[in-house]
């Protein structure tokens, strides 16, 4: 993916993210992550049924990378089951950590394929998934 396209995807998802809404509904698991660096702050509202991510919203204030990655993540995982989400996450983290990864499966997440060039932004790209992990854990603990 060339750098212009990467940038376009990030800016587009940053300026017009999907599903940005605070949800007040008991069917949704609410997890909040405040980053240790005192900056990004994201709330995820996740509805999981029979191991399937049925719906997902976010709210909060964060940088361009975190916000866009959250939006892209939401689009990618609604309708997927937890196992599939974990595989996607592994694949995505492999890309970020400069390990071998499967390009085919990442779609818009490829926009972060060169984020390793800015090590201090890696955490931003991983942030939505780290937050999602918490929600999945909460779901699994309940089961």
């Amino acid at each position: 993916m060339d750098s212009n396209l990467r940038r376009e995807i990030i800016i587009d998802n940053y300026q017009n993210p999907v599903n940005r809404k605070r949800i007040d509904n008991k069917d949704f698991i609410h997890v909040s992550t405040r980053s240790d660096s005192c900056i990004d702050n994201i709330d995820l509202y996740v509805k999981i049924n029979n191991d399937i991510i049925e719906d997902l919203y976010f709210d909060g204030e964060a940088c361009a990378i975190t916000t866009s990655a959250t939006s892209i993540m939401i689009k990618k995982i609604i309708g997927k089951n937890i196992q599939e989400v974990k595989e996607l996450m592994n694949n995505y983290y492999n890309m970020i950590d400069e390990k071998e990864y499967d390009e085919e499966k990442l779609g818009e997440l490829l926009a972060y394929s060169e984020i390793y060039l800015q090590p201090n932004r890696k955490k931003c790209a991983m942030f939505p998934f780290e937050t999602l992990k918490k929600a999945i854990k909460e779901y699994e603990n309940k089961m």
């Binding site: 900056i39 990004d40 204030e61 964060a62 940088c63 361009a64 916000t67 800015q118 201090n120 932004r121 931003c124």
Partner: peptide, 8 residues
């Protein structure tokens, strides 16, 4: 613009 983007 988010502050962290500016500092970056």
């Amino acid at each position: 613009i988010f502050s962290e983007d500016t500092s970056n």
